[in-house]
Structure formats: C-alpha cells, structure tokens
C-alpha cells in the first residue's frame, strides 16, 4: 500500500485508456504521454497497460507501507527517496516506511510513477483510467488527495530489477516542438492561405492546456467558408480550428464529438511530446504522409523492443553474477 502524504497539483491513476465506449460519448482518457508511461511499466516489470500514476507540473509525496520496486519516467520532478536524490528514467527498490517525494518539474510537464504489479483500482468499463469530468475510474474518479491509499495490483509481466535507462531511451523535453501531422479529415474546409498559415507559423501553448486539449495561440488560420460542421467524432490528436482561427489539439480526455473542422491530426507518437508541453512552449506543425507516420509508429514500437532487450540483458547479467 502507498499512502499519499502530498497529492501534488493534479495526480491521477491512468492506464492506456478506456477504449470501446466512444459511441456512448465516453472519452478515452488514459496516460497523456504514452511513451513515458509505457516505459515506466517496462522498467517496473509490469504488463503493458498496467495502471500508473500521472503527476502534473508539481509532484506529490508518498509513503510506502511495504518494500517494493518502483520506476519513474517522463518529466524530471527532482525525485527524492528519504532525502536522497534518485534518477529519473530508472527503477529502484523502496524500503518499507520510505518516503518518495517530488518537486516542481525541471522540464516537461508530466511524470509517471509505476509500481511493480501496477496500481490497483477497480476496472470501470474495462479501464482503470481516471476521467475526472465525469468522475469515472481511478480513485473515485478524481485526482489524488492527502491520505489517499493506493493499492498494488498483480499486473506483473516480468521480473524487474533496479536499473537506470541509458540516455538513448530517455526523452529530453524541449520548449520548441515540431509535431508531425497527417492532413485531414476536414482540411478541404480551409483556404489555401489557411493551410499555409497552419504549416508555416509558430504557435504558443496557451494557459488553457490540459488533459482534454491544448489550445494554441498564433496567426489566425483562415477557413474557406463556414467554420462549423455537422458534429462528428474527434480523433486522438485532432487539430480543431473554431471560427477564431486558433488551433486546439485534442488530447486524452477529449470529448468524443465536436462541431469544428479538423485541419489535421497529430500523429500518435508525437502526441507524447505535446503532452510534455507547457504554457509558453512553441509548436510548429509539419505535414507527413501516411507512410511516414507508419514509419514513425514502427520506430516507436522498435524502441519498446530495444528497451525490453536492454532490461533482459541487465537481468541475465545479475542472475549470472549470483
């Protein structure tokens, strides 16, 4: 059991999301940065899709009732175990009674804490993800608060050992992002100047950037005619442009449907980068073909394989040494 001493600014239990119920208006939710959360599970020896804790901007402090192995990935919140620094992108043992605490992010926005076995909260519609707007999933459908107790589950995938990932597998968060997009579904509703503005301008992440969507500010994107459509489904990463011409990138907690034209869709692997973006960061968009998007997706998958291989090698070294 893990006791919450300080909850942090906005900490929620998340897995890979509540897929399968968007037809009922149920948003997917799930970890915003899928790369960092998935790597955290690999490091913790968890099954893919085990629930992790997602902390935002300011981390919390947690007391561990029993000894366990935990891992940390994503933004660097200057983690500290009983007063001693611990590295980010690593797995380590925590002794019973130890306190793991976090501070403000040094770079990036979201940090993932995984525990060997995963966080155990009830499955709601097949997922443990918290969707706070409807009070669904996670811990009573809300962010953590003081004295909340997190239980450890049994989503174990493999043995896990303390280790730190080599730099090639970690992410460094830059304040200038370039996101690859596949044009459409409604790029035909924009004037050629509008498309050019979208592709060639630098946008800034506004203060309205949360799990639902990232509102960006910058040069106005011109529509060809009307700025609304008959409401339809909102794909993950959709870039909606309402009449005011400022793009909004739809994230994990996006509503299932929307009535603004979608000029483009940010590719899945690049959404993890945006999830680490903060107000004031800049965003540029670059159009890519479906083929290129699939290559990027494949290289993301390959990276997980390589991390798994690295972890297996580490383990075989340790077991031979014994």
């Amino acid at each position: 059991m893990i006791k919450t001493i300080k909850p942090g600014l906005f900490s929620t239990v998340q897995d890979e999301g509540r897929w399968g119920y968007q037809a009922y208006g149920m948003p997917v939710a799930g970890a915003m940065d899928r790369y960092a959360s998935r790597v955290a599970n690999l490091l913790a020896g968890n099954r893919k899709g085990a629930a992790v804790l997602e902390m935002t901007m300011l981390g919390g402090a947690f007391e561990f009732e029993s000894q366990c192995l935990v891992s940390l990935c994503g933004a660097d919140m200057q983690p500290n175990l009983d007063g001693a620094k611990v590295p980010n992108w690593s797995a380590f043992q925590v002794a019973a009674g130890s306190v793991l605490s976090f501070d403000y992010v040094a770079a990036g926005c979201r940090t993932y804490l995984a525990v060997h076995g995963g966080i155990k909260v009830p499955l709601v519609l097949g997922s443990r993800s918290t969707y706070t707007r409807a009070g669904v999933g996670g811990l009573e459908g809300r962010p953590l608060k003081v004295d909340d107790v997190l239980r450890v589950g049994n989503d174990v995938g493999s043995r896990a050992l303390p280790t730190t990932l080599p730099e090639q597998f970690t992410a460094r968060y830059d304040q200038e992002l370039t996101l690859r997009v596949v044009m459409g579904p409604q790029d035909d509703m924009f004037a050629p100047e509008g498309i050019r503005t979208f592709m060639e301008s630098k946008y800034t992440v506004s203060n309205e950037a949360d799990r639902m969507g990232y509102r960006l500010e910058g040069p106005k994107i011109e529509h060809a005619g009307a700025a609304d459509i008959i409401s339809d489904a909102l794909p993950e990463g959709a870039v909606q442009v309402p009449a005011h011409g400022m793009p909004i990138v739809m994230m994990a907690d996006r509503q299932t449907t929307g009535g603004y034209p979608k000029i483009a869709t940010v590719i899945g692997p690049d959404l993890s980068w945006l999830a680490q973006g903060r107000p004031g960061d800049t965003v540029c968009f670059r159009s890519c073909s479906d083929r290129e998007a699939l290559e990027v997706l494949r290289s993301e998958e390959n990276r997980y394989f390589e991390i798994e291989r690295f972890l297996e090698e580490q383990q075989s070294l340790v077991w031979t040494a014994c």
Binding site: V182, P185, T265, L297
Partner: peptide, 28 residues
C-alpha cells in the same frame, strides 16, 4: 477521409437526416 495514422472517417452524407443516420448506424 484520413484521421491520423490509425484512424479513418467514412462520410455517408452531409446532412442530418434519419435516413443517412440509419445507414451510419447500420454500417457501424
């Protein structure tokens, strides 16, 4: 229509009507 590398949109019309919607429901 394309909707990212793992999404596509099938549009069966551009109006709100019970007939078009019934086709949508049936295809789903």
């Amino acid at each position: 229509l394309p909707a990212g590398e793992r999404g596509l949109v099938v549009e069966l019309g551009n109006l709100i009507s019970p007939e078009v919607n019934a086709r949508v429901q049936r295809l789903a």
